[in-house]
Design a protein around this nucleic acid. Structure first.
Length: 835
RNA sequence: GCGGACGUGGCGGAACGGUAGACGCUACCGACUUAAAAUCGGUUUCCCGAUCGGGAGUGCGGGUUCAAGUCCCGCCGUCCGCACCA
C-alpha cells in the first residue's frame, strides 16, 4: 500500500473478503440476541440515486454497529419490482416490463455492492418473481377466507393517463400521484381489504410505537380520523322512511335549520330519475374541480328537494331537505343536519340560500339573545335549546346522546375517516389476483395447488389498456368448482400489497409457504426501520394493517411490524436556470466569482433555491461517478456528516472532498506507525470520551454527532506524541470508524494487525472513570455575565471554589471591596457572584 | 381553514437551564514548492480598541430565574401534512 489509501484497489478486495467469509449472512438459529435492521426496499427504476445512498448508508452503519455489539443482525435487501414505470417504459421503449425491471435490478444491485453495504444477499427477493408473489396470492386467499377481502361496485378514482384506478391516498389535490393527471370518477367492481375493521386497533396501536417519530404517529392518527358523535334518523314527513345523519355536535340539535344530503345519496338518485332539475344538479356537482384551490373557493351549491323531515325532539317541527355539493357520500351517512350558527360551512350555505340562523350556543346564558354574525364554532353554554339550556357543550352532548339512546331514536357512534383499501389495479405489471369468475359460481378462489398464478410474459403493449384482458389462453379457464368455462380476474394487486409483508419474507423464506412463523418471529418486529417520510401514511399503515390481519387469522403473534422507525431527510442540491428559464444540471454550469455561467456558451446562469434532487429540475448528482472517483467510504462518510439524519442534506463538492480528506487522515495514522511507550493520560481520556459519545450517537441515530466525535479524536491523535496510548487509540479509532468507512477500516486494520477482520472486532467499551477530568475549568460570572475562568481540581468544595473565584484578579475589580449579595456555586462548573 | 415542525456565524450544524458557536465546509494568512495541487501550522459571530481589554449577540416583544438558544406568554417568518370529514 502506498502513502495514500486507494479505494479503487481496496474497496473490492474487502468486499470479496466479506463475501467469501459470509460475514453478513444472518443465521436464524444463532444463540446471539437478534437485531433486524431494515431500510425501505427500492423500486428498481434504473440506477441508484443519492437518496438511496443516504438511506442505505444509515442502515448499514447501524447494522455493522449492532453486529460489533454482539447481535446477530438481519440486514437484507430486495426489490419492490412491480409497478407502473415498467409498463411506461414498455410502451415508450418497446421493452418488456420484466426485462426492463430485471435489467435495472442487475444494475442497481451492482451499484449497491460497490458501496460495500453489509447486506445478506442470500435473502434477496424481487416482488415480481413468482416465488414471491405466489406466496402473496396465498396470503390474499387466507384473508379472503377470513372474510377480510370483499368485492364492491364502487366509484373509483380513474387516472386517464395511467389508465388505472387509484386509492384515495394516491390522489393528491385531485390528481394522480404519479401521472399528475386530473382524476375522473368511474364505477367499477373492485376488490377491497377491510382495513376499516382495524381502524380502532391501528389507532390505539400507535400509542405503543414509542420508537416512532411523533410526526408520523400524528399523521397516521389524522389519517384514521376518529370522531365520536350521534347517529340518528329524521323521519320523512311523507312517511316514506327516514334520513340517517351523523353529527359530532348533537348539542346543537335545536339549532338545526335544514338537512343536506350528498348528490350521491340514494334519495337523490331516486329523485333524479323523476326530476330533470335534480339530475341536472347532480351532474353539475360532479363537474367541480378537486384541486385544493378550487375546493377552497368553491361555491356552496344547493337544491331544495321539496322533501321535509320531522325533528326528532318536536313532532311539529319540519326541516327542509336540500341536496348540497359539499356533502360527501362516503363519510358518515352521506347526510347531515345544518346548524348555521355554529358551523362555518353551514353558515355560508344558509346565508346564500336564506335559511334561518339560530343561536344555540353562547358564552353565557345571558347572551342567548345575541345575534350571530359569523359561525361560532367553539364550545360554550347551550341556549334556546329547551331542556339543554344552561348545560355546557360537553354536558349537553352527553345529555342528548343519553336521551336518544334511551328513547331509541339514535345512538352514540364513532366514525372514521379511513376508508377500506381498494387493491384492484387495471394493470399488467403486478401480482395477479388469484380469483376466477364463473357465471354460475361467482368469484371463486384459485385452488391452492394451482398457485402461483403466474403472470404471463408473452404480452405486447401496442394498444392501451391491460394486456391480460387480451390474453385469451391465460384468461379463459374452467371454473374450479363447476368446470364450466370461466375467466380469470385480470386486475392485479396494488403494489402496496407487495410491500406490506416483504419484511416478513426476508425473515423467513421457505419454498412451500409465505414464511415460517417461528423463524419469522425470531427476527420480527423490525428493530429499526429506515426510510423516507413520504411513506409515513400509505406504506406504513398498510404494513401495519397486514401484520394485524395476519395476527387475527393466527399466522403471526405480533401486532406491529416495525418497533423503531426513522424517517431520514432528502438529499438536496442547488438548482440552476438559463436565461430562457430552462433548468441546467450542475455539470453544465461553472462558478465565476460570485456568479454562475453556462459551461458551454458562457451565458449567465441563475442559481436558484436548494431543492430535492429531481430529474425535472435537473439537479441530480449520479452517485456512480462520485463513488468511482472518491471511493465508497468517502461517499458514505459524507452522507453521515454535517446534517442531522432527519433533516435534508445538501450535496456539495466541498463536502465530499472534506470526507475524502478525512479518509486519508485516518489512513495516515494507521500507515505511518509511530512506535512509542508510556501512557498519555489526556489522550486516553479523549479516547474514552469518544467511545462513549460515538456509541451514544449511533444508538440515537445521530450520525452527524458520531462523525464530529471521531473528527475530534483524530485531531487529538494527530497532535499527540508517540506513546502506547496513542497506538491503542488508533486501534480503537479504526474499530469505531469501521461502520461508516468499512473498507478503509479493514485496510488500516490489516496494516496494523496483519490478520483478522475489523468487522469481527467487538465494539470497544469505555471506562466511566476516564470520562471525568482531574482538573476542571470553572466559569466565574458576575451578575450572570462571564468574567473569568479558573482551572480547579475536580471535586473542590463550594467554599474553596467560592474563595478562589472571589480572589481572582479579574473579579476583584468588579467587587471593589464590597461584599457580594449572593454567590451561587455549582461544583466543577461555575460560580456566579451577584452584586 | 385545521394540525405539526423549525428559526443559532458566510454555510451545514453543536450546546444535562450553567463558559453560545463543538465538528465540518468556505475564506484569509503562513510553511513546504521554480510554480501549482496535495499536505502541514494559524485566523475566521459582529462592533470598538492592540492579539491582553470592552460592548452586543441564538427571528421579534415580554416574562420566570442567581443564570435562558434551552422554560412560559404573545407576535413574525419558513417548511411539511391534511383538507367542504358533518
Amino acid at each position: 500500500m502506498t502513502d495514500r489509501f486507494d479505494p479503487a484497489a481496496s474497496d473490492s478486495r474487502w468486499q470479496e473478503r466479506w463475501d467469501s467469509g459470509a460475514c453478513f449472512r444472518a443465521d436464524s438459529t444463532s444463540p446471539k440476541p437478534k437485531s433486524y435492521v431494515l431500510e425501505m426496499f427500492p423500486y428498481p427504476s434504473g440506477r441508484i440515486h443519492m437518496g438511496h445512498v443516504r438511506n442505505y448508508t444509515m442502515g448499514d452503519v447501524l447494522a455493522r454497529y449492532r453486529r460489533a455489539q454482539g447481535f446477530e443482525v438481519l440486514h437484507p435487501m430486495g426489490w419492490d419490482a412491480f409497478g407502473m414505470p415498467a409498463e411506461n417504459a414498455a410502451m415508450e421503449k418497446k421493452v418488456h416490463p420484466g426485462a426492463w425491471t430485471r435489467e435495472n435490478i442487475a444494475t442497481m444491485r451492482a451499484q449497491l455492492k460497490r458501496l460495500g453495504f453489509a447486506l445478506d444477499w442470500s435473502r434477496e427477493l424481487a416482488t415480481c418473481e413468482p416465488d414471491y408473489y405466489g406466496h402473496e396470492q396465498a396470503l390474499f386467499l387466507d384473508l379472503f377466507e377470513a372474510g377480510l377481502v370483499f368485492r364492491k361496485e364502487s366509484e373509483v378514482n380513474w387516472d386517464p393517463v395511467d389508465m388505472t384506478v387509484l386509492a384515495n391516498e394516491q390522489v393528491i389535490d385531485g390528481k394522480g400521484w404519479r401521472s399528475g393527471a386530473r382524476v375522473e370518477r368511474r364505477k367499477l367492481s373492485q376488490w377491497f381489504l377491510k382495513i376499516t375493521d382495524f381502524a380502532e386497533e391501528l389507532l390505539e396501536g400507535l400509542q405503543t410505537l414509542d420508537q416512532w417519530p411523533d410526526k408520523v404517529r400524528l399523521m397516521q392518527e389524522n389519517w384514521i380520523g376518529k370522531s365520536r358523535g350521534l347517529q340518528f334518523a329524521f323521519q320523512r314527513a311523507d312517511g316514506d322512511g327516514a334520513v340517517e345523519v351523523f353529527t359530532t355536535r348533537p348539542d346543537t340539535i335545536f339549532g338545526a335549520s335544514f338537512l343536506a344530503i350528498s348528490p350521491g345519496h340514494p334519495i337523490a338518485e331516486t329523485f333524479a330519475a323523476q326530476r330533470p332539475d335534480v339530475a341536472e344538479f347532480i351532474k353539475r356537482c360532479q363537474q367541480g374541480g378537486t384541486t385544493a384551490a378550487e375546493i377552497e373557493t368553491a361555491e356552496k351549491l344547493g337544491l331544495d328537494t321539496g322533501l321535509e323531515v320531522v325533528h326528532p325532539l318536536d313532532p311539529d317541527w319540519r326541516l327542509p331537505v336540500w341536496m348540497a355539493n359539499f356533502v360527501l357520500m362516503d363519510y358518515g351517512t352521506g347526510a347531515l343536519f345544518g346548524v348555521p350558527a355554529h358551523d362555518a360551512r353551514d353558515f355560508e350555505f344558509s346565508t346564500k340560500y336564506k335559511l334561518p340562523i339560530r343561536r344555540v350556543v353562547a358564552a353565557s346564558a345571558n347572551d342567548a339573545g345575541l345575534a350571530v354574525t359569523e359561525a361560532e364554532i367553539g364550545a360554550g353554554v347551550a341556549v334556546n335549546s329547551r331542556f339543554l339550556d344552561g348545560l355546557s357543550t360537553e354536558a349537553a352532548t352527553a345529555e342528548i346522546i343519553r336521551r336518544a339512546e334511551s328513547a331509541g331514536w339514535g345512538k352514540g357512534t364513532t366514525q372514521y375517516r379511513l376508508r377500506d383499501w381498494g387493491v384492484s389495479r387495471q394493470r399488467y405489471w403486478g401480482t395477479p389476483i388469484p380469483i376466477i369468475h364463473c357465471d354460475g359460481c361467482g368469484a371463486v378462489p384459485v385452488p391452492r395447488q394451482q398457485l402461483p398464478v403466474v403472470l404471463p410474459e408473452d404480452v405486447s403493449f401496442d394498444v392501451p389498456g391491460n394486456p391480460l384482458d387480451r390474453h385469451e389462453t391465460w384468461r379463459n379457464v374452467v371454473c374450479p368448482k363447476c368446470s364450466a368455462p370461466a375467466r380469470r380476474e385480470t386486475d392485479t394487486l396494488d403494489t402496496f400489497v407487495d410491500s406490506s409483508w416483504y419484511f416478513i419474507r426476508f425473515a423467513s423464506q421457505p419454498h412451500d409457504r409465505p414464511f415460517d412463523r417461528a423463524e419469522a418471529e425470531t427476527w420480527l418486529p423490525v428493530a429499526q426501520y429506515i426510510g423516507g417520510v413520504e411513506h409515513a401514511i400509505l406504506h406504513l399503515l398498510y404494513a401495519r394493517f397486514w401484520t394485524r390481519a395476519l395476527q387475527r387469522i393466527g399466522r403471526l403473534s405480533m401486532a406491529e411490524p416495525f418497533g423503531g422507525l426513522f424517517t431520514q431527510g432528502m438529499v438536496t442540491h442547488e438548482t440552476y436556470q438559463a436565461g430562457d428559464g430552462s433548468w441546467l444540471s450542475p455539470d453544465e454550469v461553472r462558478r465565476e466569482g460570485d456568479d454562475w455561467i453556462h459551461l458551454y456558451n458562457g451565458q449567465p446562469v441563475t442559481a436558484g433555491r436548494v431543492e430535492k434532487m429531481s430529474k425535472s429540475k435537473k439537479n441530480t448528482i449520479d452517485p456512480q461517478p462520485i463513488v468511482d472517483r472518491y471511493g465508497a467510504d468517502a461517499v458514505r462518510w459524507f452522507m453521515l456528516s454535517d446534517s442531522p439524519p432527519e433533516r435534508d442534506l445538501e450535496w456539495s463538492i466541498g463536502g465530499i472532498e472534506g470526507a475524502a480528506r478525512f479518509v486519508q487522515r485516518v489512513w495516515k495514522l494507521a500507515h505511518r506507525r509511530q512506535e512509542g511507550a508510556g501512557e498519555d493520560k489526556e489522550l486516553l481520556r479523549r479516547l474514552h470520551k469518544t467511545i462513549a459519545a460515538v456509541g451514544q450517537a449511533i444508538d440515537g441515530l445521530q450520525f452527524n454527532k458520531a462523525v464530529a466525535g471521531l473528527y475530534e479524536l483524530v485531531n487529538a491523535i494527530e497532535k499527540a506524541s508517540p506513546s502506547a496510548t496513542r497506538a491503542d487509540a488508533i486501534r480503537h479509532l479504526i474499530i469505531m470508524v469501521a461502520p461508516m468507512a468499512p473498507h478503509l477500516a479493514e485496510e488500516a486494520w490489516s496494516t496494523l494487525e496483519g490478520s483478522g477482520l475489523v468487522v469481527d472486532q467487538p465494539w470497544p467499551s469505555h471506562d466511566p472513570a476516564l470520562l471525568i477530568d482531574d482538573q476542571v475549568t470553572v466559569a466565574v460570572q458576575v451578575n450572570g455575565k462571564l468574567r473569568d475562568t479558573l482551572s480547579a481540581p475536580r471535586g473542590l468544595s463550594r467554599e474553596d471554589l467560592q474563595a478562589m473565584a472571589l480572589s481572582a484578579d479579574k473579579i476583584a475589580r468588579f467587587l471593589e471591596g464590597a461584599e457580594p449579595r449572593k454567590v451561587i456555586v455549582v461544583p466543577d462548573r461555575l460560580v456566579n457572584i451577584v452584586l
